[in-house]
């Protein structure tokens, strides 16, 4: 009973670890703007205020209500994301914008703090316990109006200042690097137009996978037969060096010699023709060549009326 309990607890722990691996630890602060401009994104009231973009790096939805957002590390629970809003369930690999306008009564996505231009701003998100730091970023003081501080690609570790130009575009609420084509496909189309490269690599991988499996089973069958032989010997108490003779490997001559020796030793026969004829009999039958394994239906021989 006790053992079962321990086992169940261990399984529960493993499941809990598995669950936490898929949880809010994968949220990232993805892009921040301190001084919004009239050209920038507006909140639902039309105000152009500072904003913080959070990105769900997971391939599963995440519920972000009850996490904390703060701009003061000494107050990790400064702004708790309220419960009860369906919009706090972030779909996989999606973004959400929080407006740092100090007016939380405007809605779930309006924080109770503001970001200050002209100085370094620390922004952090904490898990529901208010202790576990999920992500933190220090936004440089040099950020000009209309500029954002963003990760080069969603969730990446490299940051850059973006000014809204053609190359350094600002992307509130969407991917920091807009994918207009599948780079993998483009690479293959450019570098392996005839497909020899992919064929070589892929066949190599397929062969390796099955070769590894093949070798493993050779090794396993060897180990298995060794273990069963040792078990047999242990059970029968026979010496370890005893060898089991494979009688099917004996030649006809050997069998004839043994038969003659036995005949001479026991002298078991009555007067007979004294002609000894021993033919090696081939056993053609084996379950491997049996007709019953041929998947053919046995013909119905019952007479029909």
């Amino acid at each position: 009973m006790k053992k079962n309990l321990i086992l169940m607890l261990m399984m529960a722990m493993v499941c809990a670890f598995g669950a936490s691996a898929q949880s809010r630890g994968s949220l990232r602060i993805n892009e921040v703007m301190i001084q919004n401009t009239p050209e920038g994104v507006a909140d639902e009231y039309g105000a152009h205020v500072a904003w913080i973009e959070i990105f769900n790096t997971n391939f599963a939805p995440i519920e972000i209500s009850s996490i904390y957002i703060t701009n003061d590390l000494s107050k990790p629970t400064l702004y708790p994301v309220p419960l009860g809003d369906v919009k706090t369930k972030m779909p996989k690999r999606q973004h959400v914008l929080f407006f740092a306008d100090g007016q939380p009564k405007k809605g779930t996505f309006h924080t109770n703090f503001v970001l200050t231009p002209g100085q370094e701003n620390v922004i952090a998100i904490y898990d529901a316990d208010g202790i576990t730091l999920i992500d933190k970023v220090v936004v440089p003081a040099t950020l000009l109006p209309g500029q954002s501080y963003a990760r080069k690609a969603d969730g990446s570790n490299d940051w850059e200042i973006r000014d809204g130009s053609e190359e350094l575009y600002i992307t509130p609420g969407s991917a920091n690097k807009i994918k207009d084509e599948n780079h993998k496909i483009k690479d293959f189309a450019n570098n392996d137009a005839r497909g020899f490269g992919l064929t070589g690599m892929a066949m190599g991988i397929v062969f390796s996978a099955l070769l590894v499996l093949c070798l493993s089973f050779y090794a396993l069958s060897k180990i298995g037969s060794l273990v069963s032989r040792l078990n047999k010997l242990r059970a029968h108490g026979a010496p370890a060096e005893a060898k089991v003779r494979d009688v099917t490997q004996d030649t006809g001559e050997e069998i004839a010699a043994i038969a003659m020796a036995l005949h001479d030793h026991f002298d078991a026969h009555d007067q007979e023709s004294t002609v000894l004829t021993i033919n090696k009999v081939r056993r053609a039958y084996s379950p491997w060549s049996s007709k019953i394994y041929n998947l053919r239906q046995v013909p119905d021989r019952t007479p029909r009326r």
């Binding site: 137009a193 005839r194 497909g195 020899f196 992919l198 064929t199 892929a202 066949m203 397929v206 062969f207 996978a209 099955l210 070769l211 499996l213 093949c214 070798l215 089973f217 050779y218 069958s221």
Partner: peptide
């Protein structure tokens, strides 16, 4: 399992996939 080397035949036949890949390209 009895004859693991037969696995390699299963691997070789997959060349059909990649041969067709090259023709499709």
């Amino acid at each position: 399992i009895a004859n693991p080397k037969l696995m390699l035949i299963g691997a070789a036949a997959q060349f059909g996939i990649f041969g067709a890949y090259m023709v499709a390209l």
